[in-house]
Write a protein that binds this DNA or RNA. Sequence first.
DNA 1: TTTGAATGCATATAAATCTTATGTATCTTT
DNA 2: AAAGATACATAAGATTTATATGCATTCAAA
Lengths: 113, 113
Amino acid sequence: MTYSTELLKGTLKTIILKLLADNKKMYGYEITQKVKELTSDKIQLTEGALYPTLHALEADKLVTTEVEYIGKRMRKYYRLSQEGKVKTKEKVKEMSNFMESMVSLLDLKPKKS
Amino acid sequence: MTYSTELLKGTLKTIILKLLADNKKMYGYEITQKVKELTSDKIQLTEGALYPTLHALEADKLVTTEVEYIGKRMRKYYRLSQEGKVKTKEKVKEMSNFMESMVSLLDLKPKKS
DNA sequence: TTTGAATGCATATAAATCTTATGTATCTTT
DNA sequence: AAAGATACATAAGATTTATATGCATTCAAA
């Protein structure tokens, strides 16, 4: 991870939920690659963080799963539940608000300034 | 705290350092109030988080302290060291970059859009 | 005048979250 | 044949913050 990793704390669930909202269904490895791609390699999800988080989302009924096999290799797809869709909107909104607060605190201006 | 508190994780040091960069010297209670003010009450630092963090910054030589008495009541002022000033710039920059990544991930547009 | 709220410091225990390390197995490319 | 990529998973530890608690002073309101 490029950033001191602490910054990611608290944002992982939101990131995953949002990706699922945009992509209908995704599997774990795919999520790690998508995050790399969307952040130009700056955020690299580790499996030790990803899988427990996915399992937690499932336990909370925010996602459902379907297992598929590509040859003999397993793929476990995750998909937002109805409840998950609602939660995603809340979380993204919350993150957005939080970032506004951070802009105020850190006196960060949009690039144009 | 208005946000699910997890979002603050990893940002506290940066916030404190930045406030000290802007205000020369501040004491703990003052910092909590300033954060409330700048975020319209949305972020409320708890003492259990604040004081250990300040002590850690001091242990890392990023801040120096001076004790002052207002009547009989103690005030412990914190001030950035030279090293702290450098570190602050790094941290703020890092946070700024991280937020750009989050914008990409969460597809957050500036308000004007 | 006394009582509660605000000011001001501090620490300990617990909870939450992520990293690091490890493990298993398959597939593809060189 | 070996290395790297794909694909899952968990355990142990580190880090960070919350919650709870404690002490003391000052000020405002009842």
